[in-house]
Simulated assay, not measured.
Amino acid sequence: MTSHKIFNHDIMVCTDQRLIGNHLYSGRVLGLTEPEDIIQLCPDLKSQWNIITEHYRRIGLSHSTNIIWDVSYKILEDYPQYNVSLFFFGNATSKVGCDEDRFRQIDSDWLNTVKFINSKNNFIQLAQELGVSVPLTFCFENKAAIKDFSKFPYPCYLKTAISVNGVGISRCENQQQLDEVIKTFPDEIPLQIQEEVATLSFLNVQYSVEGSKLQRLAITSQILDGYAHIGNRYPSKHQPWETVEPIAEWITQRGIKEIFAFDVAVVEDATNETRYLAIECNPRFNGASYPTGIAKKLNIPSWSCEMFKTQYRSLEKLDLSDIEFNEKTKTGVVIINWGTVLVGKILILIAGNIQQQHELTAKLKERL
């Protein structure tokens, strides 16, 4: 029998505090819950509650109505009989403000595995040990260890070993630019320098662990606006599970739980042969996890999901009549990240084949 869960998918312990609206992201997990679960939500979302629950009722999406309007982790202590579902099990930024002892008491193996693989340097070193293909990458304990700038491929990416939301990642065209950027980084943090992969095709490869058993969840293609990741599409024609599975199995054996994912680059060479290069592991839920889970609950075989800007600041202003998801046709729009409408953006899943997705997207944009 599956135990009930308490969901807290607030992202503020592992995000850049300067990003507007990130405190509203706790609501996007609502569609993954079941009626018997508990969900912690940011109190700022109260004004949108009745509207999002009516939307989910109309499209046939079950969810919890056991709401705690407080995202404090301390509340988890009041529900020891519930399994815990968090966006990130620990503190992604390793900054003060997250009580690590609380996570250690819940599951120390889970915490230690997340901390280990969340380091981009640890990921690269483990991948090399397990024979997983990765881009040419150089790992350093700190910037003082970076000596010979001529040996690096250009353009390249300078990355902090631990980063969130792309913060701490800089593209460098040449040695001079790399030298200038390095000077802006703190002295004590680990860094890596990685070759730029010549592709605009990237995959999100998701796994889940339930009851210590590793399960393949979904592979989605990233939707890009230039170099910026704005969404995901399922299914993908690429299915390179074997590329990252050695790492997935390794971290599962060491205690990771719930959902985690890999970023994988798709590279086609001059002979039209396809290679897959693992970039990093995100030992947590990610942007693709929420539409993936909701699509599975609604049995949607084909979908895309993107963040859209809107002129409105409330869901009640959105007109989804005749484009809302239909259970019979398996087409239409589903609101995923609903709380962010308060700052003029909204994450929406668009169900249907590619042509239907384009048609629905066009109609949706007219109404935003």
Rank of each mutant, 00 (worst) to 15 (best):
Thr2Trp: 01
His4Ile: 00
Lys5Asn: 02
Lys5Trp: 00
Phe7Leu: 02
His9Tyr: 12
Asp10Val: 09
Asp10Glu: 15
Met12Ser: 12
Cys14Glu: 08
Cys14His: 02
Asp16Ile: 08
Gln17Val: 08
Arg18Pro: 03
His23Asn: 13
Ser26Trp: 13
Ser26Gly: 07
Gly27Val: 06
Leu32Pro: 07
Pro35Ile: 02
Leu45Thr: 11
Trp49Asn: 12
Trp49Asp: 06
Ile51Arg: 06
Ile52Arg: 09
His55Ile: 08
Arg58Ser: 13
Gly60Pro: 07
Tyr73Leu: 15
Lys74Met: 01
Leu76Asp: 12
Val84Asp: 04
Ser85Thr: 01
Phe89Pro: 03
Gly90Tyr: 04
Thr93Asn: 09
Lys95Asn: 11
Val96Cys: 00
Gly97His: 14
Asn118Ser: 04
Ser119His: 05
Asn122Gly: 13
Ala127Thr: 01
Gln128Val: 04
Glu129Met: 06
Leu130Asp: 04
Lys143Ile: 08
Ala145Lys: 05
Ala145Cys: 09
Asp148Gln: 14
Pro155Ala: 12
Cys156Asn: 12
Cys156Leu: 06
Cys156Gln: 10
Val164Ile: 11
Asn165Gly: 15
Gly168Ser: 11
Cys172Ala: 09
Asn174Pro: 10
Asn174Lys: 08
Gln175Thr: 13
Gln177Tyr: 02
Leu178Ala: 02
Asp179Lys: 15
Glu180Met: 12
Lys183Gly: 11
Thr184Asn: 14
Phe185Arg: 15
Phe185Ala: 08
Asp187Glu: 15
Asp187Phe: 13
Asp187Met: 14
Pro190Thr: 13
Pro190Ser: 14
Gln192Ala: 05
Gln192Asn: 15
Gln192Trp: 01
Glu195Cys: 11
Leu200Arg: 07
Ser201Lys: 14
Asn204Phe: 03
Gln206Thr: 02
Gln206Pro: 05
Tyr207Gln: 07
Glu210Met: 06
Leu214His: 05
Leu217His: 07
Leu217Thr: 05
Ile219Arg: 11
Gln222His: 03
Gly226Phe: 15
Ala228Gly: 08
Ser236Ala: 11
Lys237Ile: 01
Thr243Arg: 00
Val244Arg: 04
Val244Ile: 07
Thr252Ile: 02
Gln253Met: 10
Arg254Trp: 04
Ile256Tyr: 05
Val264Gly: 01
Val266Arg: 13
Glu268His: 08
Asp269Lys: 13
Asn272Val: 01
Glu273Val: 04
Thr274Pro: 11
Glu280Trp: 06
Asn282Thr: 00
Arg284Val: 07
Phe285Lys: 02
Asn286Ala: 03
Ala288Cys: 07
Tyr290Thr: 02
Pro291Ile: 06
Pro291Glu: 09
Pro291Asp: 10
Thr292Glu: 03
Leu298Phe: 07
Ile300Asn: 12
Pro301Thr: 12
Pro301Asp: 12
Lys309Trp: 12
Lys309Ile: 10
Tyr312Val: 14
Ser314Arg: 07
Leu315Val: 03
Leu315Phe: 11
Leu318Pro: 05
Ser321Leu: 04
Glu324Pro: 00
Lys330Ala: 12
Lys330Glu: 05
Lys330Leu: 01
Lys330Trp: 03
Asn337Cys: 07
Trp338Leu: 02
Val343His: 13
Ile346Ala: 00
Leu347Trp: 09
Leu347Cys: 14
Ile350Tyr: 01
Ile354Trp: 05
Ile354Tyr: 00
Gln355His: 13
